[in-house]
Amino acid sequence: MSVLPKALAFDVFGTVVDWRGSIAREAAPVLVAAGRSDIDPHAFADQWRARYVPAMLAANKARAASESTAFVKLDSLHRTMLDDLLATLDIDLDDSTRAELTRGWHRLDPWPDTVAGLTRLKRRFPIVTLSNGNISMMVAMARRAGLPWDAILGAEVAGAYKPAAQTYQATAAALDVAPGELCLVAAHHADLAAARKAGLMCAFVSRPMEYGGRPAPDRDAVQAWEYSATSFTDLADQLGC
């Protein structure tokens, strides 16, 4: 297309990093130590992640219902989700083990093309996060994985979780660009659909192994996005980087 965005904003979980494989890696020794080697670590990661969207929606609803309700960081929600999962699976872990397992979300591995692709894209565009992850989590992840962000933006800055429109629009405002001048890069059609509704441009990047090769749960939300790529390096090619 002829009109290029002025900046690129990236979903992180699943788009930039492999949350499923990374959390399975973190959970595996914990499950063995707890005497629950019968539980597949990848299934454990899936069940933890399955609590993600309901937790986000509940947090947004609580904030909308009362202006005095403080924004709850994703680290706190992850811990609540973990406690619920452990209770469901009848696994007893001490507090320090639970805390360290929750911090596993700070140590997610990038996809093989991530760093090279971001580095190329950064040559031409400002690149920022537009994630539901809190700032300290995104900073720790970036430092560990070498993610070259220009800024950490998203839910904590906006005071709301995606798919709330203000999360996307606040990111554009922080960059002093119009929503239509900001392009969300994501592997999730539902995220892109919400971004488009909020006025953003959209770039889909396929991550077929995010769910271990299973079909993505939001595949029915697909639209004709401004860009569609197989990797960040492919997107860089398309954007002339």
Rank of each mutant, 00 (worst) to 15 (best):
L57A: 08
A64S: 11
A50C: 03
D46E: 12
L74C: 02
A50H: 12
A55Y: 15
A45Q: 01
A50P: 06
Q47L: 12
A62T: 11
A64R: 08
Q47P: 00
P54C: 07
A55C: 14
A58L: 12
K73V: 07
Y52E: 13
F44D: 00
A55P: 06
A62S: 03
F44G: 00
L74G: 02
P54I: 11
Y52W: 15
A64V: 00
A59V: 04
V53F: 10
W48Q: 03
Y52C: 04
R63V: 04
S66W: 05
A58N: 12
E67V: 10
Y52I: 08
A70K: 15
D46W: 06
A65Y: 00
S76V: 14
A59D: 10
R51K: 14
E67P: 05
A58I: 06
W48D: 02
K73L: 03
A65P: 02
Q47E: 14
P54G: 09
K61Q: 12
A70E: 15
L57I: 13
K61L: 11
M56V: 02
A64T: 05
S76P: 00
K73P: 06
V72Y: 00
T69D: 04
N60E: 08
N60S: 12
S66V: 01
S66Q: 14
K61G: 08
A70P: 11
L57T: 03
V53S: 13
R51F: 04
A62K: 15
A59T: 07
A62Q: 13
R63D: 06
W48E: 03
S68L: 07
N60I: 05
